[in-house]
């Protein structure tokens, strides 16, 4: 039986590819059951219907890249009892945070060369830099079963069960042969947050960090191993400067090697 007084859940989009909120619609077996338990009160991608706040739970996708969105997220927070962020854009600024590493002056001159008005901030930042976030679900994209777990946990008032250990551990559990040791591939598995099930190594390639840094990642140790394998500084910069480039441990590591690279060349 559908429950009475269902909790109101809202889905909000900021700068993103929409993939993470689509994960909700990708729950093909669970979606209709889920709508029996929650009231989807605001989810423009799926519905014309909009129910006014306040909301029991807001699910936020995307990063903050415009002055308008920086204001909008404040309103979302004010109207939400709980606010969770989903995906690399919302939790770390996303791939569009690569703009944060550009020379700002160069960037501005490029933007303002156009006669049209483009309202954009110079950086792409995670939601947590703007408002209090109750939980961050990692991934590019997020794992849809983890999303269901997080929604369930919040509605039941418990802590979500989403392990924060490394992708490397997931890989070992799967019994996949290490692509770094056995094939000499660049792999971010040792420093990347679990969640994907160590997908890339099972497809014969190194992890490229979709789920961002794990708890207390030892990035410098990984870099020195990569160097021993003959990886150039420039490649190390690029591998940390990907989907989760602006997440602090990855950002610091890429900046360090960028500096080394410049000193070396300079």
């Amino acid at each position: 039986m559908p429950r009475e007084n269902k909790p109101k859940v809202a889905v909000w989009k900021f700068a993103s590819c929409d993939g993470c909120q689509l994960s909700l619609l990708d729950c093909e077996d669970e979606f209709l059951a889920l709508t029996q338990e929650i009231e989807i009160a605001n989810f423009p991608e799926a519905s014309r219907a909009v129910i006014e706040g306040p909301y029991d739970l807001s699910i936020v996708e995307g990063s903050i890249t415009t002055p308008h969105d920086a204001e909008r997220i404040q309103k979302v927070r004010q109207s939400s009892k709980f606010l969770i962020t989903i995906g690399a854009c919302a939790t770390a600024g996303g791939i569009q945070a690569l703009r944060n590493f550009k020379d700002v002056n160069e960037f501005i001159s490029i933007v303002y060369a156009t006669p049209a008005y483009i309202d954009t901030l110079q950086t792409s930042t995670p939601i947590s830099e703007h408002v209090k976030v109750d939980f961050e679900l990692r991934g590019c994209p997020i794992d849809k079963m983890q999303l269901i777990e997080v929604i369930s946990a919040f509605l039941k008032g418990r802590k979500p069960n989403t392990p924060a250990h490394s992708t490397c551990i997931e890989c070992k559990r799967r019994g996949t042969v290490c692509v770094m040791v056995a094939q000499g591939q660049m792999c971010l598995g040792p420093v990347t947050h679990a969640g994907c099930g160590a997908l890339c190594p099972t497809y014969n390639r190194g992890c490229y960090g979709c789920f961002g840094p794990k708890e207390t990642p030892n990035t410098s140790s990984l870099s020195s191993w990569l160097k021993k394998q003959g990886t150039e500084n420039e490649q190390i910069v690029r591998v940390f400067r990907g989907i989760n480039a602006y997440a602090e441990p990855f950002r610091k590591e890429s900046e360090l090697h960028e500096k080394e690279n410049k000193n070396h060349k300079g």
Binding site: A15, Q96, R99, K102, T120, S124
Partner: peptide
């Protein structure tokens, strides 16, 4: 269309 630009071609 007010979707914020993400500048893929740039990076």
């Amino acid at each position: 269309i007010f979707e914020p630009p993400r500048f893929f071609e740039g990076f």
